[in-house]
Structure formats: C-alpha cells, structure tokens
Nucleic acid binder design. Structure first.
Lengths: 187, 187
DNA sequence: TCCATTTTTTATCATTTGTAAAATTCCGTC
DNA sequence: GACGGAATTTTACAAATGATAAAAAATGGA
C-alpha cells in the first residue's frame, strides 16, 4: 500500500500539508524476524506498514504476550511513547519481510503545531486507533474464546495464513493448547 | 472539578481558544439513576464530569456488562458515536447525582477545523483516552481476576466506596460471585 | 422502626481454561 | 529424500471461573 493512500485513509490532506508531512517520511525495509521497537527504549518514530505483517508483544516474567497484530495500511506506534513520551510496554517484531514508512515523531509534533490539517490528521489517527482498541477490549469482555476465534476466522482470515497459531492464541488471550482445542471442536 | 481545569488537563489552551470552546459548553445536572446515553441513539454531545460517578455498560441478551467507570475530571463519550458518527454500544448511567459539562460535538468539530489549538486539544483528548483504553486491554490480557482486583484496590480505592460490587465485578470481567470469592480470600 | 427490596456472601457442582508432557506435523537445509 | 528443530496437536490432570440457588446482610422508603 502506498504511503499516500495510507495518509489519505486517516484524513485527506490538502496538497501542501501532504507534502509537508511526506517530507519527514522515508521508506525503510527490514527482514522477517527483525525487532523494530523495544519496550525499554523510548521510541522516536512511528511507522506505517506498506507491505508485511508485524506483532506487538509485551514481556512479563519471561512470557511473551502478543496483544496487537498489524498489516498493510496499519500504523505501528508505541502508544505510550507516542502520547506521553515515556517508555512503552511493547516490542514489535516483524513476522514477514516488511516495507515500512518511517516518520519521526518530533517532526510530526512540530507539524501539529504549525498546520491545522496535520493537527486534525493526528487527531483522526488517534481516534481510529481508539475505536479499534475499544472494540477489542469489549470483545474480550463479552465474547468467549471460541467466539473471538470465530470472529477472527470471518473478519481477518488472512491472519491465520500469515501468522503462526502461537501468536494468534496469545492475541486472543488464550494459550496455544486452548486454541488447538477450539480448532478441533469447530472442524 | 471546574470545567477550566478539566480542559487544561487535556491540553492548555490560549485564552481565545478556551473561550471559543467554552462558548459551546453548558453545565447540566442529573440525578442518580439517570441514563444519560443510550446505545441505540447516535449521541450528539460529549460530557465532562464535574461531580459524580458514572458507568458505561453494554447489553447483550439481557445481560449488562459494565466496561467503564468514570468520575470527576473524566470525559464521557461514546467513542464510536464521537469518532465515526455511528451508533455506539453503550448506555451511560449515573451512579450518583452528577454535575456535568455538556459540549455539542457538531460545534466541537467545527472548531477543530477553525482553531489549531482546539484541534490539538482534540488530538490529546483522543490520545489520552487511547492510552487508558490500551492499558486496560493489556491488564485484561496479563493479569488474573485477583490481580486486577488488587490493582483496583491500590489505584482506585475510592471506586469501591462509591460503586456497588456488582458493577465492579462486571468492570473487572468476572461475575459478582467470583468477586465475592476473591474478596473473601484476600481478607 | 419496620418491611420490602436489593446487594453480597456462601455453598455446590459444572464448565472452561491452564499446565505439563508426549506425540505428531511442518519446514528448511543438507 | 532424510534429518533436526520448531510449531502444533493431543492427552491427562489441576486450577480458576461460571451458574445456580439459597442464606445473610445492607439499603431505602413508608
């Protein structure tokens, strides 16, 4: 997916604003397995996924918990780093070779103060992430593990092709074993 | 909490912008038990809580699930209505007599387009809500019910004084009975 | 204060999910 | 195509949570 399309999907910008934003964006590529962000570091960039698929996970006592999976068109940002400037909780690992668009947050924040269109673009970016995050929180509260898996199966079937089940299970908030059980029952 | 303080906590505004925003805000009061928002309606206002405590809950097959509890200084908004203009999933019920500050979203969106400071204020509003929501999603994924209750006990002890346990249990994602069990064990 | 109602607790049993370990399948490399 | 390591599935058992019902306690109004 092109960077212009990704930008436009958030909030269409007039030409001048789009160019101002693009001036700070560069294309970067990393191989499968690369760890893009580390929880212990304050992250100074956000990324848009042009091609590939990635996961965000947090570590607690040796355990890895995947809590987000993103693909083409999605935005990679350590919410906490981005919003508060503090360390975030997540590592980000690339699950495929990826083409990313990198945007320095310091430059972005400067643009927020100078360009009202970019400021509103930043607002929509946060708002859409917010709705998506809230949807997942609610799904977690309302649906059983089986229902959540069924939902994934219908709404994001490509994930099952592209992401190993261990990560999917973690993302659904259950163990690999539970997921296997669910899959066995459904068949 | 005063409306000026609430506004400032999101993002400090220059005098002119603050006045422009305040022009669209009015104080309203409702009694305990009042249902402020209904899931089936598209909500055209957001509210800031000056005094009181409220809960957001969704209904599924007769069951009510409380998924948010807010108090003085918090913002009441149906994320989905606010962001996408579609119906949200939540009812909002006042758990105490409340003083609220009401802000019409249509006026607010107009200001977003006219005033860069307000646009950035709106950005920060969404960003802070995003971080809070993400924190809850992650807590849900990492912590057991007992740990989540312990956390509530240390970080938001006032909720236990002001909100009945049935709602707290629902908020924690467990049944009333489970919460009772946890409380009995901890003592 | 007393009564009716709501909320919380307790107890029991059923179900779901987790843990651990073994068996199987998958996949890349030689 | 065979080998080795990783991922997945299966199995058995344990722990956590849910459902239901009933008792106890707290609440609120007349």
């Amino acid at each position: 997916m092109t960077i212009d399309r990704i930008i436009d999907n958030v909030y269409p910008l007039p030409e001048a604003s789009r160019l101002a934003l693009r001036k700070h964006i560069s294309e970067v590529s990393f191989p499968k397995g690369h760890v893009l962000l580390r929880a212990e570091r304050i992250e100074r960039n956000i990324y848009f996924i042009g091609q590939g698929i990635v996961r965000a996970y947090a570590r607690t006592d040796g355990e890895e918990t995947t809590f987000w999976i993103g693909k083409e068109g999605d935005t990679i940002l350590s919410m906490k780093s981005y919003v508060t400037g503090e360390k975030g909780y997540e590592d980000i690992e690339l699950l495929e070779n990826c083409v990313l668009y990198q945007l320095n947050t310091e430059n972005l924040h400067q643009l927020f103060l100078e360009d009202i269109y970019v400021a509103n673009w930043g607002r929509k970016l946060a708002e859409y992430e917010l709705v998506k995050t809230e949807e997942r929180l609610i799904a977690r509260q309302f649906q059983s593990a089986t229902e959540r898996y069924r939902e994934l199966l219908t709404h994001r079937p490509d994930l099952l092709q592209r992401v190993q089940l261990g990560h999917i299970a973690s993302y659904l908030g259950i163990t690999r074993v539970s997921l296997s059980r669910i899959r066995a029952e459904i068949k």
